[in-house]
């Protein structure tokens, strides 16, 4: 860590303060406990997830959220349709894929994101190797995983391996 991460400190503190304001329902008389809670949350976050210098990009975050929302709707509609078909038409299978994201939080976020996207469920993550359960092997799942991977990389400002 070359310098004290003031920017990360500021943004995390702001985030926790907003969270407290939401939890307290906007009441002004709760800030005594609130400030202590925000300070403790800040200390815990610095200990558990030390800042690495680069902040998530706002634009990447917005694009990721838009992608995530659209895909969640698709995923929910797809699986609801499959469940309600008079005759089940499932073609599940297992797919292993080598991630191009660097080691760290990005891979975990991707594995978790895929659990909520259409037709993918993370079963194992060892190093860069992600094992997925796929609901319908006839669909181009690997390409969709790559798209999700690019979104996660852009949000965290990470470089994908070639």
């Amino acid at each position: 860590m070359p310098r004290f991460p003031l920017r990360a400190l500021f943004w995390r503190g702001a985030l926790f303060a907003v969270l407290w304001w939401i939890l307290a329902g906007g009441r002004a008389d709760s800030w005594g406990v609130g400030l202590v809670s925000v300070a403790l949350a800040l200390a815990a976050s610095l200990a558990l997830l030390p800042p690495r210098g680069n902040l998530p990009s706002w634009r990447g975050l917005a694009e990721y959220l838009a992608f995530f929302l659209a895909q969640s709707v698709r995923g929910g509609v797809q699986v609801a349709g499959m469940a309600l078909r008079p005759r089940l038409d499932l073609h599940p299978g297992v797919l292993e894929i080598m991630l191009r994201l660097p080691d760290g939080a990005g891979r975990v976020v991707l594995a978790n994101t895929l659990n909520l996207l259409p037709g993918t469920l993370s079963v194992g993550l060892e190093g860069a190797r992600l094992r997925l359960h796929v609901l319908d092997t006839r669909r181009p799942v690997a390409e969709e995983v790559r798209v999700a991977e690019r979104h996660v990389a852009r949000m965290f400002g990470l470089r994908l391996a070639a």
């Binding site: 929910g76 699986v79 609801a80 469940a83 659990n115």
Partner: peptide, 9 residues
């Protein structure tokens, strides 16, 4: 799959 996706939507 059914639980995670349909219930979250």
């Amino acid at each position: 799959h059914a639980l995670a996706k349909a219930d979250n939507l």
